[in-house]
Simulated scan of single mutants.
Amino acid sequence: MDPGLRIAGIDEAGRGPLAGPVVVAAVILDPARAIRGLDDSKQLSEARRETLYARIVERALAWRIVFVECAQIDRINIYQATLHGMREAARGLDPAAEYLLVDGNKLPDNLPCEAQAVIGGDALEPSIGAASILAKVARDRHMQALDARYPGYGFARHKGYGVPEHLQALQRLGPCPEHRRSFAPVRKLLEPGLFDT
């Protein structure tokens, strides 16, 4: 691969939660403006992710964050929603990427340029690590905002994942508009007859 190519890393956050969007980011790092400490966002503290987020946004040649909302996740499924977000993030870069490194083992179709899937790429490729940080921080901030809009579920703490606190709140309050109806723990609560007395 030509080192002079504009290479974008792509990663997502939020495939597994029961609520909120899946968020995909694409980042083209600037070789002239290095950012130390890039890594898989899951290996970094929240404070460190926030610091790196600001640096990435300031120093990257290009970056793009795409939110795929829960209604679309329910319509096309989480796998297809993630691929859609990756495609949109790649297409939204300006300047455009000339090569893509995508975290995982599958590539979306109709990408704007050549691409390679990289398993565990967020820990191996700095551009994918940068994308993982942007996606994670953007999604966490969004879930904190949803916590204020839909109190009682604990979104600010668990970010929509199916932890016991969230499952108990779902039982108590029922799903809110940000819950993914196609995910089993939510779908079970919506099955006819469940709330009949």
Rank of each mutant, 00 (worst) to 15 (best):
P3N: 15
P3G: 15
R6M: 13
A8Q: 03
I10A: 06
I10K: 04
D11H: 12
D11P: 06
R15S: 08
R15I: 03
G16N: 07
G16D: 02
L18S: 00
L18F: 00
G20N: 08
V24W: 02
A25Q: 05
A26L: 09
V27Q: 03
D30S: 14
R33A: 15
I35T: 08
G37S: 10
L38I: 06
L38M: 12
D39G: 10
D40G: 13
K42A: 05
K42V: 00
Q43I: 08
Q43C: 13
L44W: 01
E46N: 02
R48Q: 12
R49L: 08
T51V: 12
Y53H: 15
A54R: 15
A54T: 08
R59I: 07
L61V: 08
L61P: 00
R64C: 15
I65K: 07
F67P: 02
F67Q: 06
V68I: 15
C70L: 04
C70A: 14
Q72W: 04
D74K: 11
R75F: 06
Y79T: 05
Y79Q: 12
Q80T: 00
T82W: 01
T82D: 05
L83M: 15
L83F: 01
H84N: 05
M86H: 02
M86P: 04
M86G: 02
M86V: 01
R87T: 06
A89V: 01
A89R: 02
A90C: 13
A90F: 09
L93H: 06
L93C: 09
L93W: 06
E98V: 05
L100Q: 02
D103L: 11
G104L: 08
K106A: 10
N110Y: 10
P112V: 06
A115K: 08
A117W: 10
I119T: 11
G121W: 07
G121N: 05
L124D: 12
E125F: 10
E125L: 10
P126E: 11
G129D: 01
A130N: 04
A130I: 10
S132K: 02
I133N: 01
I133P: 01
V137Y: 04
A138L: 05
R139F: 12
R141W: 03
Q144A: 13
A145N: 08
A145G: 06
L146H: 02
D147Y: 10
Y150L: 10
Y150H: 14
G152H: 12
F155L: 14
A156C: 11
R157K: 15
K159F: 00
G160W: 01
A169Y: 10
R172Q: 15
P175V: 07
P177Q: 07
P177G: 10
R181H: 13
A184E: 11
P185G: 12
V186P: 00
V186E: 02
V186T: 06
K188V: 12
K188Y: 05
L189D: 00
L190I: 03
E191A: 15
P192Q: 11
G193A: 11
F195M: 10
D196T: 11
T197L: 13
T197V: 11
